[in-house]
Simulated assay, not measured.
Amino acid sequence: MKKTCLLITMLCTVLAVSAQQAANRTDDKKRKQGPWVEQVGSIRGEPGYNWEGVYKNNRKEGIWRKYTVNGDLLAEETFRNGALDGMCKYFYPDGKISATGMMLAIDIEGQKDTVIVIDPVTNEETFTEIVRKGNSVRHGEWRIYDEDGRVMRETYDRGEVTGSVISDPRRAKSAPLPHEQQSGPGKKRKD
């Protein structure tokens, strides 16, 4: 019996070590590739967190999950080419959803632009290459939930708010059913 327990413990240890080695790998060019786990320590009074997701050529790709140091889910964000681009969900510490919506990447990380720089003394023009950082904005409908169940819907067009509505599901009245509606003169609706 003791040999079986020892064998199972050793097997679990080997599997845990091999799984950890499978994550956080780089290729020959030192680019992050494949499954990745990142730990971010506390900064300026903000608590630390852990990231889990996949890197492709040193850029975040697909769904990344952010957890508290205790393992509670904080966020699920979709990345494409290292920038937020797709469905995002955010959660309260008790696990209830706090916000959902789409992000739109307007700049891709690593994208290069060439600009002309003019020397103010000599008026000499030189071409300079600028490397962009990834940048994303809210796009489409976002739903923001408070802890009491109220929902605020905001609509965005490439980061600009185009409308917002607050609704309270506890106070919402449903539309009358067809048999409850007035149908013709003299008939009254039943309440």
Rank of each mutant, 00 (worst) to 15 (best):
S98R: 11
L6N: 10
Y67M: 08
W64R: 02
E147Q: 03
T128P: 00
M87W: 11
D85E: 10
I118R: 10
G45L: 07
L11S: 13
A75G: 11
T26R: 15
S98A: 12
G45V: 11
D146G: 01
K112H: 10
D191W: 07
N58A: 03
G45F: 09
V117K: 08
M152C: 01
M152D: 00
V131M: 08
V115H: 01
D148H: 01
Q181S: 06
T126V: 09
K2L: 10
E125C: 06
G71K: 05
P176Y: 04
G82Q: 09
L7V: 12
D148Q: 04
V121Y: 04
G53Q: 02
R138I: 12
V115N: 00
F91D: 04
G71D: 01
G134T: 11
Y145C: 00
G186T: 11
Q182E: 11
E125I: 05
Q20M: 14
D107S: 12
K96F: 00
K30C: 09
E46G: 05
L6S: 14
G82H: 10
G48I: 13
Q181N: 09
S167R: 01
F127T: 08
G71E: 03
F91T: 12
E129I: 14
M87F: 10
R138G: 03
K133C: 09
G186D: 06
G62M: 02
K173I: 00
R80T: 14
L73R: 12
T13I: 14
A75Q: 14
G48A: 13
K30Q: 14
Y156V: 11
A23S: 15
N123W: 09
Y49I: 10
M10A: 12
E141Q: 03
R25N: 15
I144K: 00
Q20L: 14
